[in-house]
Design a protein around this nucleic acid. Structure first.
Lengths: 340, 340
DNA sequence: ACGAAAAACTGGCACGTGCTAGTCTTGAGG
DNA sequence: CCTCAAGACTAGCACGTGCCAGTTTTTCGT
C-alpha cells in the first residue's frame, strides 16, 4: 500500500518538467508539445495519478458538479438517476449523488451536497418543507422533480398527473367501461392532481365517480385493502384506476385470490410504469412519466439557472403517456353482482 | 441568487471572531465558549454557510470518504448501498457514490471516485478485469462485493453460493421432491459455485442432476426459455432450482400460462431475495444474501485496511439463508407425464 | 490579592490545483 | 546574421480549510 497519493508535482518531477505543464496537459490545453504530453500521461499512468477533484474545484471556484438527491428505495428513482447522468454529461456537467437512507434524512443529504459545492441541486421527489426549499433556492439553483410546488419556489419538473389519470380513464371508457373506480393515495405528492384528473374525466364522460381512499404507505397492502372494500360491496366495478403501481399490484393480487380474473372480470391500471409494472408476470397497464424527458428537462432548467444568474425558476410539465398492457380489457358482459 | 458561497471567513467577520474559532466550532472541538459557539452557528445558518468538503479534505489529506461503485439497474444494489451507509456511518466514514450507467463504464466511475480522494473503494459486483483490480488495490484498499476473485487480489465479501443452492435443494428434498432440476445462468459471476452446490447436494441425497443452461441475460425471457424446454420433455421435474430470481420469475410465468400451478404442480426457488421475490404477487422462495451482513463485512474490511496500512486483503464468506415462501410445496402425488 | 493553570481565542503555514503573467526556445522572413 | 513572433514552458499567487504554536482572558486555589 502506498502511503500517499501522487500529485501533479510527482508526475512533473518524473517527467522532468514543471508542475504547471502537467496541469496544462491534463486540462487538454494548448502549449504542450505532443511528445511531452505523451510522456506526461505515461508517467501519470505509471504512478497511478488522477487529478484531485477537490483541489481543482477549490481553485476554480466552480465544481462543474450538479448534486442529485434521490431515494434508492423509491422505485422510479433509478431510471431518473440514470437518465440524469446522460443529460448532464451531454451538457458538460457531472453528477454527485446524495442518497436518502434510514440514517440520512433530506436535510443531511442536501447539506452534504452543498458541502461539495455543487453548482445546483436536483431533488427527486423531495419532502423538504416549502419554506426551507425557498431558502435553499436563494443560495443556488434548485430543481425539484415530481413534486407539485407553489409557483416560484424553485424550478420544478413534473408530469401532468391530471392528464395521466385522464388518459387511463379515457382508455377504459373506450374499452366500454362505465363503472370505473379510483384508488386514491393521499400520501402521494401528486395525489390532488391525479384525483382531480379522475373526477374531471369521469365528469366529462358523464359517469359517476367512485373513489376509494387507502392508507398512506406505498405498499401493496394498501391496494389489497381497497380490493377488500370493493369485494365487500354488492357490485364490483368493472375497472379500477390506481394512483400508483404498488397499490395496483396489491389490488390485483387480492382480486385473483378472491377468484376474479384480470382483466376478464376487472380491468386495473397503475401509475408510474415502474419496473414492477413491466414484469411480464404483472403486465400492468400503467401511466408512464418518461424518465429521460423529465431528466433532460431538469438538467436544462439547472443549466439555465447556473449560466444565467438571475433567470427565474422554470416550471416544466411533462405529458405522461399510457402504456397499455395486459391488465386492461373489455368489461365483463353485464355488471353482475359480486360472485362470492 | 447569491454570486459567491459564503466561507468560514464570512461567518467569522459577522460574529466578530477569528476564522480559526469558527473552524473549531464546526469541528466540535473544545476551546469555544458555548455562547460564542451558539452565535457562530446562528450566523452560519443566516448566511447559509456549510463547510467546504473539498478544502477540508485537501488540508486534512484524508477525506473520510469511502467510494462505492454500484449499478442502479442491478436489483440488489439498492439494498446494499442503503446498508453500506449505515455501516460506514457507524464507523465514522461517509460514502460517495459512483453510479454505473449507459454512458459511464466502471473505469470512468472508479477514476472519478479516485479523483475525490476516497480512502478506499467498495465495488459492488465489479466486472473490471482481475489484473486491473490488482493494480488498483496497490493504490488504495479495495473491497469487492459479490464477485469471486482469486486469492489476494483485493478484499472480497461474497456469499456462499454453494451453500445457498444446497439449502434450496435440501428444502425441496425435505418436502419430498426427488426430480429436482437446476437452471444455470453462466453469465452470473457466482455461477460456478452455485452450480457446484446443486450437483454436490443432489449427489449427497443420491439423486441424479438435471441441469438446464439458459441464455446470458438476467431477464425473465431466459427463465421462460428454460420453462419451454422442460415443457418439451416427456416428464416435468417436480421442482426447479433457479440461479437467480429473474429467471425464476420468467419460468413461473411460462409454467402458469401452460396451465401448470405453482407450487402444486411444480415448486420453484430463486436466488437473491430481491424485491421482486418479496412481492406478495410473486411470493418466491429464494436464497437470501443478507445486505446488512454483506455491507458490514465490506465496511469492516475497508476500515481495517485503511487503519492498518499493511494488512493483507481479507475474504469474508457470508452464509446465505433460505427464505421460504409460497412457491415451494410438496411434490405432486406421482411424477405424471406432462399434462399437455 | 497574587500567581498559575485552564479556557478562549488568534497567526501563519500548508494542502493540490488553476490562472495570469511572465521567460526561454525555435524557426522563419528579411 | 538579426529580428520577431509563435510555441513551449515556468514562477507565483490564490482558493477554503485544518493544525501547530502561540497569545490573551478567565478561573481558581492559597
Amino acid at each position: 500500500m502506498i502511503s500517499k497519493r501522487p500529485t501533479m508535482m510527482d508526475v512533473a518531477t518524473r517527467v522532468g518538467v514543471s508542475r504547471q505543464l502537467v496541469g496544462l496537459a491534463f486540462r487538454n490545453e494548448a502549449g504542450v508539445s505532443s511528445s511531452t504530453r505523451e510522456r506526461i500521461f505515461e508517467a501519470a499512468s505509471e504512478l497511478g495519478y488522477s487529478p484531485d477533484i477537490a483541489a481543482r474545484s477549490l481553485r476554480r471556484r466552480s465544481s462543474n458538479y450538479i448534486g442529485v438527491l434521490f431515494n434508492p428505495a423509491h422505485s422510479s428513482a433509478d431510471d431518473i438517476v440514470e437518465a440524469l447522468y446522460a443529460a448532464a454529461h451531454e451538457r458538460g456537467y457531472n453528477l454527485i449523488l446524495g442518497a436518502l437512507t434510514a440514517t440520512r434524512d433530506e436535510r443531511d443529504a442536501i447539506t452534504e451536497l452543498l458541502g461539495f459545492r455543487t453548482e445546483s441541486v436536483i431533488l427527486i421527489s423531495p419532502e423538504t418543507p416549502v419554506n426551507e426549499l425557498r431558502k435553499l433556492a436563494k443560495r443556488l439553483p434548485v430543481v425539484s422533480i415530481g413534486r407539485p410546488l407553489p409557483q416560484g419556489v424553485c424550478s420544478a419538473v413534473r408530469s401532468d398527473g391530471q392528464r395521466g389519470i385522464a388518459a387511463a380513464v379515457d382508455h377504459l371508457v373506450e374499452l366500454g367501461h362505465r363503472d370505473i373506480a379510483y384508488v386514491l393515495t393521499r400520501s402521494l405528492p401528486e395525489f390532488a392532481a391525479r384525483h382531480q384528473g379522475y373526477v374531471t374525466a369521469m365528469d366529462r364522460h358523464g359517469l359517476p365517480s367512485r373513489v376509494r381512499e387507502i392508507g398512506g404507505d406505498f405498499t401493496e397492502e394498501s391496494g389489497a385493502g381497497a380490493a377488500e372494500s370493493f369485494l365487500a360491496e354488492p357490485v364490483m366495478p368493472t375497472a379500477v384506476v390506481c394512483s400508483n403501481d404498488h397499490a395496483a399490484m396489491g389490488l390485483i393480487n387480492r382480486l385473483l385470490r378472491a377468484g376474479l380474473r384480470v382483466p376478464e372480470d376487472v380491468s386495473v391500471t397503475g401509475y408510474d410504469d415502474s419496473r414492477i409494472a413491466r414484469l411480464s408476470f404483472v403486465d400492468l397497464t400503467s401511466v408512464r412519466q418518461d424518465p429521460a424527458e423529465m431528466s433532460t428537462a431538469a438538467v436544462e432548467a439547472a443549466v439555465q439557472m447556473m449560466s444565467d444568474q438571475d433567470s427565474t425558476p422554470q416550471e416544466r410539465m411533462i405529458v405522461p403517456t399510457l402504456v397499455i398492457r395486459g391488465s386492461t380489457g373489455q368489461p365483463r358482459s353485464e355488471a353482475q353482482l359480486h360472485p362470492r
